[in-house]
Write a protein that binds this DNA or RNA. Structure first.
Lengths: 111, 111
DNA sequence: AAAATACTCAACCGATCGGTTGACTGTTCC
DNA sequence: GGAACAGTCAACCGATCGGTTGAGTATTTT
């Protein structure tokens, strides 16, 4: 099931941070790996998970692998969640807290 | 991290199916477990994961545990995804396929 | 041609996952 | 009180997860 892979990929904060970087533009594997205190091989695995879930695409250009975001699976996930949101009254604060917290607790390389 | 738990909980189709059932109204543990070919204990664990992620709440009423949906974490997840959707052009078809497929492949108790 | 670069691959590790079974704790029903 | 019921808990199992290290494969660079 596609949603399994999508949500699983999103359940790891390292991978979410990678997506955050990718949202600013394409990045090489090395660039994606740099901010994290882990081996390149480990980061490479994370990237493969994102790729497997279809969340990113990879273009091998010479010896560098350029990664960029790919939309559809994330959209499907969002739509799934949206489908359920209708049943409750949204409380926007929780999310902002979660997003802000995540941005702060990890380096915030983006202003 | 809250989003870890939210997305992890959503990454299992059994749990997503439980949420689908819950979207129709509160259900007991037994009712939630019934559709699945697994032990009650296993289903109980799934419910505990959903509860741990804050996606559902439980009211112990006598010997019965009544579960109902809880909104915020799912909303935070949706908002996270929405945040990224902006960067791409949405393609609604993929999602409908995914949702439809999931509904079909498992019983589709909701018309 | 040799050396450095940018990665992947494979093997391994401990921790967690999803499932099982069996024993247990409380209700509710008779 | 005793039996049936609703559900949890604990121990265990194989599979997967997230990480490591070491070796291997292309591609640049010099």
């Amino acid at each position: 099931m596609a949603l399994d892979a999508t949500f699983h990929a999103l359940s790891d904060r390292t991978r979410r941070a990678m997506l955050r970087g990718l949202a600013e533009g394409p990045r090489t594997v090395g660039e994606l790996a740099a901010p994290f205190a882990m081996s390149l091989a480990a980061a490479s695995k994370h990237i493969k998970v994102l790729e497997g879930a279809g969340l990113i695409e990879r273009a091998v250009k010479g010896r560098v692998h350029l990664c960029r975001l790919s939309a559809e699976p994330m959209h499907a996930g969002a739509e799934w969640l949206r489908h359920y949101e209708k049943f409750w009254n949204a409380r926007l604060d929780a999310l902002e807290a979660a997003l802000a917290e995540e941005d702060e607790t990890k380096g915030s390389r983006r202003t």
